[in-house]
């Protein structure tokens, strides 16, 4: 129940409280109350029919982008300039 998925926002309802997202060719209407900053073209993280966060689009497109090499991932785990870092 806590797994959310990113979808691209295609359009906003006139009141801005909901919008339509691209769900792999089909469309879904999702709630946008928690993400008032969401704009058409943004990726939103959707859980149980409601957007809970707006994602940086390049990173939302593929879950792998942020982990495209070990060095970067290692950097995420512990800053590279840490003198204790063994790697």
């Amino acid at each position: 129940m806590c797994l959310a998925r990113p979808f691209k926002l295609l359009s906003l309802a006139p009141d801005g409280l909901s919008g339509v997202v691209d769900a792999g060719g089909a469309t879904l209407t999702v709630g946008l109350i928690l993400t008032p900053e969401a704009k058409v073209g943004d990726f939103v993280l959707v859980h149980a029919g409601a957007a809970i966060e707006v994602l940086a689009d390049a990173e939302a497109q593929t879950i792998l982008d942020a982990f495209d090499d070990f060095a970067r991932l290692n950097d995420l785990v512990a800053p590279a300039d840490d003198p204790h870092d063994r790697h």
């Binding site: 129940m1 806590c2 109350i33 149980a48 409601a50 809970i52």
Partner: peptide, 13 residues
């Protein structure tokens, strides 16, 4: 039911 991931959008609703 659910944790805050669900409760927050339910609250909004």
């Amino acid at each position: 039911i659910g944790f805050e991931t669900t409760a927050a959008p339910v609250a909004a609703m």
